[in-house]
Amino acid sequence: MGIIKAAKLFYDYVSKNEQDEVENVIHAVAGVDLDVEAGQFIAILGHNGSGKSTLAKQINALLVPTGGTLWVKDMDTKDPANVWKIRQSAGMVFQNPDNQIIASLVDEDVGFGPENIGVPTKDIWRRVNQSLKSVGMLEYSQHSPNKLSGGQKQRVAIAGVMAMEPECIVLDEPTAMLDPNGRKEVIETILELNREKKVTVILITHYMDEVVHADKVYVMDDGEIVLAGTPREVFTQVEDLKRLRLDVPQVTELAYELKKAGMDLPDGVLTIDELTEALESYRDR
Results as ranks from 00 to 15, higher is better:
D209V: 02
A255V: 01
M162V: 07
M220V: 08
E233T: 06
P249L: 01
E196K: 15
D247C: 08
Q250F: 01
L227D: 14
V199T: 13
L191Q: 15
D267M: 01
E173Y: 06
L193W: 04
H206D: 13
K216M: 03
L270W: 02
V201M: 15
E257H: 08
D247S: 12
E233S: 10
M263N: 01
V217M: 13
E257S: 09
P166H: 09
T189H: 13
N194R: 13
K260M: 13
K242F: 03
L254W: 02
H206W: 06
K260C: 07
K259I: 03
V269N: 04
K184D: 15
C168H: 08
P266L: 00
L171M: 15
I225P: 07
D267S: 02
A261F: 01
E167G: 15
Y207T: 07
G229R: 10
I202G: 08
D209P: 01
V234P: 06
V201C: 14
D273W: 00
A261V: 00
E196T: 10
R195N: 14
D264Y: 00
K184A: 14
V199K: 15
R243W: 11
G268M: 03
L244D: 03
V269E: 04
I225N: 13
V251F: 04
V251P: 06
K197L: 08
L171S: 12
E185A: 14
T200I: 08
I169D: 15
D247W: 11
V251L: 14
R232W: 02
V211T: 15
T230V: 01
Y218C: 08
K242T: 07
P249M: 01
E165V: 05
N181P: 00
G229H: 09
D273L: 00
D267N: 04
M208I: 00
A163Q: 11
K260W: 06
P166T: 07
L265F: 07
E185G: 03
E233P: 04
L178R: 05
E210I: 10
D172M: 01
P174S: 11
T236G: 13
V234Y: 02
A261S: 07
E257F: 08
L227S: 14
V170S: 03
